[in-house]
């Protein structure tokens, strides 16, 4: 969605107009006057212009392969379905056609869009991102997460390759929303839920509605498990365990959606592992000894590991050595 912002709307119109061709004298005077009205106009315009220019990087002749465009009387919009791997075949097919213009495909090995493999979304360490799908569903990606979404009129499928995400699904009986992660399949039954993947272990927390969790690799050993509101399921190959969660526990589990880590009586060892998902600077707690068992409770900013380390020092009297890459905790 575009926010309603009259200045940005005007800036975008001026930019689009100049993108069409040079302004005539009268229009140019109008544009200059608009720019001079306030600094806000100017910075808004410059921001859009920079973004529009940056999009030119999609066309990088240095690494490009050139292909002819189809003749102009060809049916419009075939490029919607041009995945890279089919480009070669397509080129052969149209080699006979007179090439009027050059089509430049940058970074051919990564050119599997639009739609070839669905949309891909990813976040780096400490980042979050909300993806809006065309069916109205939303996916919030937590730190260090990667997923692919294929959502169209016929099917709705998301593959979670790694990390954690919160799904707000617009329910549609005819087209169930399916999340696949490893061998597990989660089918929504009208829902808000989160899925977190750690290797082949999966945790599903249902905030609203219900989902069905299935082990696709072992359909005979593990029956599909219905997980309803205020429940969670931990699934591993050949095992799906269900447990109930209080409202507060659900809020804690989803604290990351606001950038917060919430702990109630959790051992320091686990708390450190949680922080390490969100920060490049890693907390190191000795594997042996009682320190890892120190109980931690409270609400912390996920990406502010320094503040947490300071608290360990001032609150628990632990020694904290920070070398910029790691924070080592000791007695």
């Amino acid at each position: 969605m575009i926010e309603h912002d009259p200045i940005e709307e005007q800036a975008a119109r001026w930019l689009a107009r100049q993108d069409a061709g040079p302004l005539n004298a009268a229009a140019k005077a109008g544009f200059d006057a608009w720019l001079a009205t306030s600094t806000r106009h100017r910075v808004t315009y410059l921001r859009l212009e920079a973004a529009w220019r940056r999009a030119d990087h999609l066309r990088s002749p240095g690494q490009a392969t050139t292909l002819p465009l189809p003749p102009t009387d060809a049916p419009p919009a075939p490029w919607r379905r041009w995945p890279a791997r089919r480009a070669a075949r397509w080129a052969t097919m149209t080699a006979a056609a007179a090439a009027v213009l050059l089509l430049v495909l940058p970074l051919v090995d990564e050119w599997d869009w639009p739609f070839a493999a669905g949309q891909k979304f990813s976040t780096g360490v400490g980042d979050r991102y909300t993806a809006h799908l065309q069916d109205g569903s939303q996916i919030e990606l937590n730190t260090n997460t990667r997923l692919r979404a294929s959502v169209d009129q016929t099917a709705r499928e998301v593959r979670l390759d790694k990390g954690e995400a919160f799904f707000e699904v617009v329910h549609d009986d005819k087209h169930p929303f399916v999340v696949i992660s490893g061998d597990l399949r989660i089918v929504d039954v009208g829902t808000k839920f989160s899925v977190r993947r750690d290797g082949d272990k999966l945790e599903v927390v249902v905030a609203e509605g219900a989902v069905l969790v299935e082990d696709m690799a072992h359909p005979n050993d593990v029956p599909p498990t219905l997980v309803t509101q205020s429940m969670a399921a931990v699934a591993q190959p050949k095992a799906i365990r269900k447990s109930s969660r209080s409202e507060e526990q659900i809020r804690e589990a989803l604290g990351w959606r606001h950038g917060t880590l919430v702990f109630t009586d959790r051992p320091l060892r686990e708390v450190a592992a949680e922080f390490n998902r969100y920060n490049r600077k890693q907390l190191v707690v000795p594997a042996e000894g009682p320190m890892g068992d120190i109980r931690i409770g409270g609400s912390f900013e996920a990406t502010n590991v320094d503040a947490f380390a300071r608290l360990l020092h001032s609150g628990f009297g632990l020694k904290v050595i920070d070398d910029g890459r790691e924070i080592r905790i000791s007695n």
């Binding site: 575009i2 709307e9 975008a12 930019l15 689009a16 993108d19 973004a51 529009w52 999009a55």
Partner: peptide, 9 residues
């Protein structure tokens, strides 16, 4: 274009 540039930005 006016719409696209805002979304891209």
């Amino acid at each position: 274009v006016a719409k696209g540039v805002r979304l891209i930005a």
